[in-house]
Design a binder for these strands. Structure first.
Length: 219
DNA sequence: GCCCAGGTGGGTA
DNA sequence: TACCCACATGGG
């Protein structure tokens, strides 16, 4: 049975670095993290572009923008009314309570995570995306792909259903390095999207017994 | 047409 | 606690 690090190496070798999170600023990373909830990244990109065109691609500008304008920008990303609400609420909280997003990271990972989780529309996955990719804290983002992979590979017990527990267990076997943890999450998403979803029985999917990507890596 | 996407919150039992 | 459902657009 390949170890978690074996799989990380195999994926990195196969796909190359994904260099997540796409985005030029920390603000943009946070905005993208909220917008990508249950949504294709390509749709998020359209929404980000709409915001950028209106010079609204920053937390401070979103905090003071009219709701209707934000909603209009977010339409391509789906669930746009909800996301506009979340994004504006989050932005207003950041500006009024912290001043800027960088201030959040000075609190350290634990306090910052707790603060994020208190915000409407920010659950553990979004919070960890912000903390790992935006704040450079060593946290592995757990999503449905990662859970499935962890269970199939036997790293996680089949009945595990707690985000925090899954994260804790997987992180035990990984370096406490935000670059590695961020890359691993990105690679799992990449592989799952490119191969597992399109060809569930493909010959190189490591989530299936016949995965030759793993074999190719001589695991 | 149908299913899903880089989830989350609210309601119900 | 453990499910179920709404949210909503766009691509395969």
């Amino acid at each position: 049975m390949p170890s978690i690090l074996d799989i990380y190496d195999a994926l990195l070798n196969y796909w190359g670095p994904q260099n997540w999170w796409p985005g030029e600023t920390t603000d943009e990373i946070c905005i993208g993290a909220i917008l990508t909830q249950n949504t294709n990244w390509s749709n998020v990109e359209k929404a980000l572009m709409n915001l950028k065109r209106k010079e609204l691609l920053s937390i401070s500008s979103i905090a003071s923008a009219p709701k209707e304008i934000i909603e209009e920008c977010l339409k391509p990303a789906g669930t746009y009314r909800r996301k506009a609400l979340y994004l504006m609420d989050f932005s207003k909280q950041v500006i009024s309570r912290l001043g800027c997003i960088e201030k959040l990271f000075t609190l350290g990972p634990n306090k910052a995570r707790k603060w994020l989780l208190k915000q409407k529309g920010i659950g553990p996955e979004t919070a960890d995306s912000i903390l790992c990719y935006g704040g450079n804290f060593p946290l592995l983002v757990i999503d449905a792909y990662t859970l499935r992979l962890g269970k199939r590979m036997g790293w996680l017990s089949p009945e595990i259903n707690s985000y925090d527990k899954a994260q804790e267990e997987l992180q035990l076997y990984l370096p406490k390095d935000p670059k590695v943890l961020g890359e691993f999450h990105a690679l799992i998403v990449k592989h799952s999207k490119e191969i597992c979803r399109k060809k569930p029985r493909c010959s190189m999917c490591f989530m299936m017994p016949c995965c030759s990507a793993v074999k190719d890596a001589q695991i």
